[in-house]
Amino acid sequence: MAIQIILLCGLVIFSALAILLKDLIKAALSLAVASLLLGIIFFRLAAPYAAVFEISVVAGLITVLFILTIALTKKGDEVTEARLVKLAFPVFLILFLVIDGLVMKSLLQKIPALPSGPEAGTFGEVLWKQRTFDLVAQVGVILAGVLAVLALFRKKEEDKDE
């Protein structure tokens, strides 16, 4: 329990750093560390497949994509943020912490969640047999993403030809 709380606190701290740090590279690396901590939390929740995806895809691939984008947009750091944003953040965070602590417990008793009960079978059976439609949707989403990226960069090449 104590380790879980430390991991969750680390996750929140690195996520907050990711949005508060001015240097975008440091922000992207903080996000990667937060993903790594989330992956460890998944491992401890007995969800190894989700943990592997979180660490390899989110902490690895998405961080590389972010750093690539930051490198391609060198002047990105020059965007000036409003001064009040960083000053007001701790105030709003503490306010939300209090509301969250007061409201969440009563909310949990009211919101219906997944029916409780032990599951049968293995992860593979659940993924490939019960959630087959999800897999089809995943293929569709990946194809849409690839086509969108290709379309976005093709347009620029046509501009150069002109």
């Binding site: 992860f123 995943q138 993403g145």
Partner: peptide, 29 residues
């Protein structure tokens, strides 16, 4: 994990991560 439905939750989380990657790739482009 709390409701003893970790296999289903994992498959949903993996679907969610795949959607997230497609979103981020498109958005960064």
């Amino acid at each position: 994990a709390v409701k003893n439905n970790i296999l289903l939750a994992q498959s949903l989380a993996i679907t969610y991560i795949v959607v997230e990657v497609a979103l981020v790739a498109t958005a960064l482009a």
